[in-house]
Amino acid sequence: MSIEQSVQLNFLSRADGSAYYCLGNTSVVASVTGPTSGRVSARHHNKCNLEVQFCPCNGQPTIEERDVECIIGECIEEILASHLHPRATILLNIQELQSEHEHQLLTASLNGAVMALMDAGVQMQGLLAAVTCCYTHAGVVIVEPTALELQESKSSLVFVLESDTANVVACYQQGRLSVAEYTAVLNRAIEAAKEVFQFYRSEMLKRYSSHGCIDGQNEADYDYDPL
C-alpha cells in the first residue's frame, strides 16, 4: 500500500478513547464514550446499544451522513462483544476533518473508529480494516487510489474485512464489475487489509511498550489477593 497512514491515540482528554487518524489526504477524529447509560428507549436487555454519530467538516449532517453512520454501526456491531454490557450504550463520534472522496472518508472513518475502540479498551471479538480500491477502464486494480483515480475508474469499492479470517464484513461499491474482476479486486483488498492490521499492531506496540512494561523491567512481584 503506497498511501501513508498515521494515528494519534488518546487524542481527546475527556473521551474514554479517541483516535486522530489520517489516511493519505483524509483525516478524521473518532471518539468513544462508554459503556455508559444511554437513552432508556434505546436500551436492549441482552446487549449494549451502539450509537454512531458522524459529523461532516462543514454544515449539518444530512441523509448521506446517516448512511455512513449506518454502515459503520452495522460493521462495528459485528466485532463488538456487546453481550458483555447489557442495558449500556457505547457512543461513537466521528468528526471528519478533511477528505476528498466519500469512499476514502468511509475507509478512514471505519479504521479510525476501530482504533478509538481499541484505545477505549472496549471488549471486541476481532478487528476490522477498511480498504478503498478501484478498477480502471484499462483493467488495472488500484488499492487506495487518489480521488481523481476514483472518479475516473470503472468501479470503485470499499471493502471492510475482518482480522482473523479475512472475511468480507461489508462491501460498498459503485459501478458494475464481472465476477472475475470483482475477485481480482477482492484479493488485492485482502492483501492491503493485512497492512492495516499490521499498522494497528505496531501502534499498540508503541503505546504499550512506552510504559516500560514489556521488556521485562517491570516483572514485579506483587501481592495478588485470590480470595
Binding site: 482473523d164 506496540l205 501481592d223
Partner: peptide
C-alpha cells in the same frame, strides 16, 4: 493478602488474537 506471586509479561496482543 495472599502470597506473593511472580507475574511475567509475555507480549502485546490485539482483540481477536489467538492466545
Amino acid at each position: 493478602m495472599g502470597e506473593s506471586r511472580h507475574v511475567s509479561s509475555m507480549k502485546v496482543v490485539l482483540p481477536g488474537d489467538l492466545i
